[in-house]
Computed example of a mutant assay.
Amino acid sequence: MLTAVTGATGFLGLHLVRELLARGRRLLLLARPHPLPAPVRVERFLRACGADEDELRAARTHMETVEIVLEDGFLGLGRVAFQRLADRVDVLWHCAGHISFAATLRQARRTNVDGTRHVLRLLSAGERTPLLCHVSSVAVAGARTRGVVEETVLDDSFGFNTPYEQSKFEAEALVHRWVAQHGGRAVVFRPSGLVTHHPAHPARPRHPLQVLARQVDTVLRHDPGMLTSPGTMTLPVPPGASTNILPVEHAAYAMVEAAERHTSRTPPVHHVVNPRNVPLTELIATLGRHFGVRVDTAEHLPAGQPDVRRALPAYAYWLSVSRTYEDGNLARLGLAYPGRPAIDRHYLASALR
């Protein structure tokens, strides 16, 4: 059985590849052209995770690569090679995407929506009936700020804060229509903010907290007007604001295991989330300690003070999502994230290193 993976060298993708290799799967990495081949980047990641030489040799024999252009209708392969690929795939993990909160809607759609459409075309073109494991996001809930988001609901009535949210919503909607209209087989995963407390290394992309920290560092160095007084920054935080953060290692394990157990009778959508949100005040305080800055919070900023949300799109996004998420489908499989250990200040501090 051949398992194809898009986005295999992304932050989540690398962890999914590790889980799939641990189960002995033969992998076809559908990767963008890059100076460093995808298997080399995967091997560097595995080595950093502690894989020994026997594991690395086994991984090499289980991986091959096809370079693709996700935004092209035939994935940049041409009609003949596209059909040849379609006839080989048994399972496809679609993890690739444009994840920047600063992207325009056109940019986000080109990768997230058109790319998904082209993947669905691939899965419909072959001799087999492959399973699609589609990595969506809890961001499909858009600008909804409160309440519990259900796994069976895909609703755009709240609108969207960012083009990223809208593009992920539209991509998931494509998948559901493909299943309903063409009899496709799919399981959808909606992870929340995925992080890790393990040290970074060159082969691993940054996770959202590290991206936010980099943006904060840029603001502190280039826009000192954001400091309300020497060594102090004031950030707007609505009362009770919180965000959902989950260790990527657990997410990857739960997703692969759920896909292994998938049948046509099981629910097609899984929220991959933490049962406990992290208070935004705790996240902000950890960021402050990381940079040696005192951080005050206020519901409303004083008149005339620059609003950091303009400089930090990721922070502006997190301010708007204090909602929680149903996670019954993974829980029924025994794969929901346990309540402890919690994502606390010590974990967050390690995740920022």
Score class of each variant (00 low, 15 high):
251 A>C: 04
251 A>G: 04
251 A>E: 02
252 A>M: 12
252 A>R: 10
252 A>V: 13
252 A>F: 14
253 Y>R: 12
253 Y>G: 03
255 M>H: 09
255 M>I: 11
256 V>Q: 03
256 V>K: 02
256 V>L: 12
257 E>D: 11
257 E>K: 13
257 E>S: 12
257 E>R: 15
257 E>W: 07
258 A>Q: 00
258 A>W: 04
258 A>L: 08
258 A>V: 08
259 A>P: 11
259 A>Q: 09
260 E>N: 13
260 E>R: 15
261 R>P: 08
261 R>D: 02
261 R>N: 04
261 R>K: 08
261 R>A: 08
262 H>Y: 15
263 T>I: 10
263 T>P: 05
263 T>S: 15
263 T>G: 02
264 S>G: 11
264 S>C: 06
265 R>Q: 14
265 R>H: 11
266 T>G: 03
266 T>F: 01
266 T>A: 03
266 T>Q: 03
267 P>A: 01
267 P>K: 04
267 P>H: 09
268 P>A: 14
268 P>F: 08
268 P>E: 05
268 P>L: 15
270 H>G: 02
270 H>W: 01
270 H>V: 01
270 H>S: 03
271 H>F: 07
271 H>G: 00
271 H>S: 01
271 H>Y: 09
272 V>Q: 09
272 V>W: 04
272 V>R: 06
272 V>C: 03
272 V>L: 09
272 V>M: 07
273 V>G: 00
273 V>T: 15
273 V>L: 04
273 V>M: 01
273 V>F: 00
274 N>W: 04
274 N>Y: 02
274 N>A: 13
274 N>H: 11
275 P>W: 02
275 P>A: 01
276 R>P: 00
276 R>E: 13
276 R>T: 04
276 R>A: 13
277 N>D: 08
277 N>E: 06
277 N>W: 03
278 V>R: 05
278 V>F: 02
278 V>Y: 02
278 V>G: 04
279 P>M: 06
279 P>W: 05
279 P>K: 04
279 P>F: 07
279 P>I: 07
279 P>D: 05
279 P>V: 06
279 P>N: 07
279 P>A: 07
280 L>V: 06
280 L>F: 12
280 L>C: 05
280 L>Q: 05
281 T>D: 11
281 T>P: 05
281 T>S: 10
281 T>E: 14
282 E>W: 08
283 L>R: 11
283 L>H: 12
283 L>Y: 11
284 I>C: 07
284 I>N: 05
284 I>G: 02
284 I>H: 05
284 I>E: 05
284 I>P: 03
285 A>E: 12
285 A>F: 07
286 T>A: 14
286 T>V: 15
286 T>N: 06
286 T>M: 07
286 T>F: 06
287 L>K: 14
287 L>R: 13
287 L>P: 14
288 G>H: 13
288 G>A: 09
289 R>Q: 12
289 R>E: 12
289 R>A: 13
289 R>M: 09
289 R>P: 08
289 R>T: 10
290 H>S: 09
290 H>V: 12
290 H>T: 13
290 H>R: 15
290 H>D: 09
290 H>L: 11
290 H>Q: 12
290 H>Y: 13
290 H>A: 11
291 F>K: 04
291 F>H: 14
291 F>S: 08
291 F>R: 07
292 G>N: 13
292 G>A: 13
292 G>P: 12
